[in-house]
Design a protein around this nucleic acid. Sequence first.
RNA 1: GCGCUCGUAGCUCAGCUGGAUAGAGCACUGGUUUGCGGUACCAGCGGUCACACGUUCGAAUCGUGUCGGGCGCACCA
Length: 531
Amino acid sequence: MKQRVSALLREKLGREVVLEKPRDRSFGHFATPIAFSLAKELRKSPMVIAEELASSFSESAEFSSVESVKGYLNFRLSENFLAEYASWALDNPSAFAKGENNQKILLEFVSANPTGPLHIGHARGAVYGDTLYRLAKHLGYDITAEYYVNDAGNQIDLLGLSIQLYAREHILNESVVYPESYYRGEYLDALSQGAKEHFGIEILSDESRQKELAMWAKDKVMEIVVDTLAQTNIHFDTFVNESGLYKDWDRVMKKMGDNVYEAEGKLFIKSESKGDDHDRVVVRDDGRPTYLAGDIVYHNQKFERGYDHYINIWGADHHGYITRVKAAIDFLGYESEKLEVLLAQMVSLLKDGEPYKMSKRAGNVILMSDIVDEIGSDALRFIFASKKSDTALEFDLAEFKKQDSSNPIFYIQYAHARIQTLLSKATVTKEDISKASLKNLGENADTLLFDALLLPEVVEDAFNSRQVQKLPEYLKSLAASLHKFYYDVRMIGTEDEAKLLKLLLVVALSIKTGLSLMGIEAKDRMEREEV
RNA sequence: GCGCUCGUAGCUCAGCUGGAUAGAGCACUGGUUUGCGGUACCAGCGGUCACACGUUCGAAUCGUGUCGGGCGCACCA
C-alpha cells in the first residue's frame, strides 16, 4: 500500500517523499510533511503548497480524500483500493507481504563454540538471527543461514581435558585437582558415559588421548546444540568447521601479500593501518594460529563463495573485533563494506523480581533449553524478538508464564483464536464470506482493515532496518485493535456478518503470517487453564 | 585513559532516515454491554524524553560537551 502511495507521489513530484503514519488516525492513513521542505525552494508558505498539492490529487482512484492540514498533506485511501487489496491477499495468502528481492545474502549467527550447551545469551542472537532470516526469505532474498563451528584451538583441548576431569571424579572416583580453567556442567556426565561406551574406559584417564576424545565430543555437543535450536524452530542451512579451513592457509596468506609480516618469530597482520589499536598476532611463536587466524580463513572462504552481502551476528562483547576482521577482508582484496556486523547485547534474567544469576565458574549456567522448558519456545522467541537487539535486556520469567493480556504472546494468540471461534460459529457459508464486499463497513472496521493490511510494510521495514522488534510491536497493536473491535461490534447473526467475518479473515491472515515470521505458530484455540 | 554503546512514566520497554497534543504493558485506582470466550474492554494516575549548548520554521530524534550505566581495549575464544 505504502509503496503504491509513494510511487504516486514520486510520479507527481519527481522526488522521494517521506511518508508517515499520522499519530491520530482521523488525519487519514498516510501523511507527509513534504510541504515544509518545499517551502524554501518554492518560496511559498507550506500551507499554500499543501493546499495546491491536495487539490491536485482529487482525481486519484486510490484516495478517497487528500487534505491539507496545517501544512501537512493527509491521504485517506479509498474503500475500493483497500477492499481490492484485501481480497487479493485472501485469495493469495502465501504471497501476502512477500517481496521480490534477489540479492544473495550469507547470514552467520549463533556460532557458539562446540564445547557446551547453549546458554541464555546465545538464545538472543539465535532468535534475532532466525527472525531476520525468516523476514529475508519472505521478502524474496536468497539467504543462507550459517553456523561457524570453532572446532580448533584451545577450547577444544579444554573440552577433552574437562571430560577427563569429570570422569575421573565421577566415574573413576579419583580425587581430582582442578586447574584454573575447564568446563563444567551436567552435559559432561552424558559425554563421559558416552565416551566410555564408545572408546572403552581407558580413554577417560589417558592424557595422550585428550585430543581424540575432544574431536569425538565436539560432534556430540553440536548434536545437543542443534537439538536445542530445533526446539525453538531454528535451523541452519550450512555448518562450516574451522578445522577444515586450514588446508587453505598458505594460499590465503599469500593472498594477503605484504599486509602480513613476521616479527619476534610471530606472524602479524597490519590491522593498525585500518584503524585498529595495533597490529594483531595471527600465528604465535610456537606456530599455533590465533582465533583471528581462523576468522581470516573463514571470511576468505565466505567471500570466495561469492555473496552480495554478508551479515554476522555477534555477541556485544565482540564489538572490538569488527575492525580486525574487516581489515583482514580488505587485505584479502574484498570489499569489507559488504560485511555487516550486528551485535546482540547481554541478557539478564529475573524470576519473580529476583535476579537469576549466571556464573560460569560455578557451572550453574542458565541453559537455553531450561528456558524453553520453563516458558516455551513461543514466549522465548517473542521476548527476544521484541526488544532492540543492541540494548541490554532484562526480563522476568514469571511474566511470560501468565495466561492473560499482560503476556503479549498470549494476547496475540488469543486474538487469533478468537477469530477462529467466531468463524466456527458463523451462520453464513464460507462462500458467502468470500463473496462478501469489504465496503461500507463503517469507520471502526475500516480502521481495523487498514491495520491488518499494514503487515507488508512492517515486514519490509523490520528487515531493512534490522529492527525485528517492529514486527511484534505491530502484532501487539493489531491484536489490541481486534480485541477492541470484538468488544464494540457484534458480528454473528447480524446483517453484515459475512463482510465482518471476511474482515476478520484478513486480520487472522496478518497475525498468522506475522507470527510465522517469528517462528511461532498461530493457535486456533486457547486451552483453558485448569484451576 | 581510549573506543563502542545505552540513558524516555515507579518497573520492563517502544518511538530515533527531525515534523501535528511523548506511547504500550506491568504496578496502582475506579469502571464495563441484561450479547459472539470478561483469558476481554474503558477510564484515571504517572514524563524538565539524564543535563547543557548548538543546527533548524520545527529536536526525544541530528551535532558537540558534561554526568551516569554496560561492554570492549589478549599471542582467550
